[in-house]
């Protein structure tokens, strides 16, 4: 009893009720067991995802020999990095502009940024398809990149703007005052200060682009299939172990990006100030996932 009371005042390291611990374990099991099963079966020597026989790396080897799969993989990487780069540049400039200048329709533009995020992804995808067809543009890697930029750019704008919002205007004035022209002020002062926001926006854009299915399904050409589309196609014929192997690698890749981005952000923010803007990383992902059909 006494032990419990003491901990109530500190609010730290409280001993948990066994039921609470069990409940927490169940939740984590629910979240991660399916993922774990995929990873496990990717090392399974049996071709059927029912019983684990013994350990093998065969499927990984087969996966790398699958030319179509590899082509889709490189397409995905190309589209993700190209669209992220473009989205980061446009999005950052947009956020800086929205912060710096006062103009008509500013409020409207601010609100309009949320449209690609909140509308159902399917509607957005069909809109892109109709748009490209009406312009007589043939579906290709190009259309794929353009549509990925369109839906990932708002995420960059929102994360960068969150970072800029708490900014003291006079810091940029100080740079001008000390002899920096506008361009120097931007890359010596403004950009380093908003960099954590730019990076988290970019990581967000990258992960969204990497696993996008719906928009890609409508805007990819015949020779520009991406990995998620390819997997979708393969799954239709039954889940083969090489899909498990591929999924395992994707999990490792995505988690790696997540850790990397968190580490970079923490490093940058610790260097600058104690302001925490890492929330920009999680919330938009959730809202997007929720809107996905």
């Amino acid at each position: 009893m006494r032990h419990n009371q003491m901990n109530k005042t500190t609010g730290k390291s409280r001993e948990f009720h066994p039921l609470a611990v069990g409940y927490a374990c169940l939740i984590y099991l629910f979240l991660f067991l399916p993922i774990f099963v995929v990873i496990l079966f990717s090392f399974n020597s049996s071709a059927r995802n029912i019983m684990f026989e013994h350990f093998t790396l065969e499927w990984y080897g087969r996966m790398f020999q699958n030319r179509q799969l590899m082509e889709a993989f490189w397409n995905t990487i190309l589209v993700a990095f190209a669209s992220t780069l473009i989205a980061v540049v446009i999005g950052t400039l947009c956020a800086v502009g929205l912060h710096k200048f006062e103009f008509k329709l500013k409020q409207t533009i601010n609100q309009a940024l949320y449209i690609p995020i909140v509308i159902p992804e399917l509607v957005f995808a069909i809109a892109m398809l109709v748009f490209f067809t009406s312009l007589n543009v043939e579906m290709s890697l190009f259309t794929l990149i353009v549509s990925h930029v369109t839906f990932s750019m708002p995420f960059v704008v929102i994360t960068v703007r969150a970072r800029i919002a708490g900014f003291d205007q006079s810091i940029e004035e100080a740079a001008r005052d000390l002899g920096a022209n506008e361009w120097h002020t931007f890359y010596r002062v403004t950009l380093p200060m908003i960099l954590p926001g730019v990076i988290s926006g970019g990581m967000l854009a990258l992960t969204i682009s990497l696993d996008d299915v719906v928009v890609s399904y409508f805007t990819a050409g015949l020779d520009s299939t991406t990995l998620p589309l390819k997997i979708l196609g393969m799954v239709k014929k039954g889940i083969s172990p090489d899909v498990n192997a591929l999924s395992t690698l994707m999990i490792i890749g995505t988690v790696g990006i997540l850790f990397l981005s968190t580490a970079i952000q923490n490093h940058l923010e610790r260097k600058q100030d104690s302001r925490t803007s890492s929330t920009g990383m999680s919330t938009p992902v959730q809202s997007r996932k929720a809107s996905a059909p």
Binding site: D168, S170, I171, E173, A174, A175, R176, D177, L178, G179, A180, N181, V189, M193, Q272, D273
Partner: peptide, 16 residues
Amino acid sequence: NARNVNTVFQNYALFP
């Protein structure tokens, strides 16, 4: 940036 004057700001405005 082209004026030979410098400013000390009220809130310091140091580059963080």
